[in-house]
């Protein structure tokens, strides 16, 4: 198999071997601090169970909100011509290039503005609340959702939407019956990847909602807390949980994209 173009193939395969080895070292070196007994004991602790639950709830909620807003936004950017489109398209990308710490700072500062105070007055506060965690994750992931969904909508043949219109569909009905089903796999991939990004989010979440145990400590912030207290077995247990969830997500993406072929 390697005989033809063997030099070229070896050059291309070597980095793959290097990367696989590197990741195996990263994961394997945790085994010194990992035991099944300890893992099960840590899983039984209330604050870890709470961190897992909070991470799952917040990541799911922020993903749902992000996707609901990202679908029409991405469609508009992919299909509708309007003045200032290029500017808005670039502006929407801003959270992708800003570090999450900076995003968290922006959210906190905006909560001190008139609009932020309005929300505070009606009882919507961010520090040490689930709302803070969700808003931080949403802010980080929404741009990624828009970018992925826009690419999916652009891949749908415009001609199919036009034919549907001429066969009697309204613009909305054509969107529901043609565009969404044809972009389905792209939308699923976007949901999975943004959810994965949300569950691993740390910087903005810590800035906005803090890391109160049992309240706003997510899996990533719990790992940070455990490491800062030199509680290595606990940190490794949390990492293993996060790795397990991430692998499940990555396999999900692989299944979705491969069934596309």
């Amino acid at each position: 198999m390697l005989k033809r173009d063997s030099t070229f193939k070896v050059i291309m395969l070597l980095p793959l071997v290097f990367l696989t080895g590197y990741f195996l070292i990263l994961v394997g070196s945790q085994s010194a601090f990992f035991s099944l007994d300890n893992f099960l004991e840590q899983l039984g602790q209330q604050d870890i169970r709470s961190a897992i639950t909070l991470s799952l709830i917040a990541a799911t909620a922020s993903t749902v909100i992000a996707i609901i807003l990202a679908i029409p936004t991405a469609y508009a950017l992919a299909r509708i011509e309007f003045p200032g489109k290029r500017l808005l398209d670039t502006f929407i990308d801003l959270p992708m290039v800003l570090t999450p710490i900076a995003l968290g700072t922006l959210i906190l500062m905006s909560w001190n503005s008139a609009i932020g105070r309005l929300f505070s007055d009606i009882g919507l506060t961010l520090p040490f609340t689930l709302a803070g965690v969700i808003l931080a994750q949403f802010t980080v992931i929404v741009a990624i959702s828009v970018r992925m969904l826009k690419a999916s909508f652009e891949q749908v043949d415009r001609r199919q939407e036009q034919v549907a219109r001429l066969l009697g569909c309204t613009a909305f009905s054509s969107f529901l019956q043609i565009t969404l089903p044809l972009a389905k796999r792209g939308i699923l991939a976007a949901i999975i990847l943004t959810w994965a990004r949300a569950i691993g989010e740390f910087g903005a979440t810590v800035m906005v909602a803090g890391t109160a145990k049992g309240q706003t400590a997510t899996l990533p912030s719990s790992i940070y807390l455990a490491m800062s207290m030199a509680d290595l077995p606990r940190a490794v247990t949390l990492v293993v949980i996060l790795i397990s969830i991430s692998l499940l997500v990555l396999f999900g993406v692989r299944m979705v994209t491969e069934s596309k072929k």
């Binding site: 043949d157 001609r159 199919q160 036009q162 034919v163 549907a164 001429l166 066969l167 043609i178 089903p181 044809l182 389905k184």
Partner: peptide, 12 residues
């Protein structure tokens, strides 16, 4: 009714 060059059948 419209029959485009690329036919645009609905693959789903």
């Amino acid at each position: 009714s419209y029959l485009p060059q690329d036919l645009a059948l609905f693959p789903h």
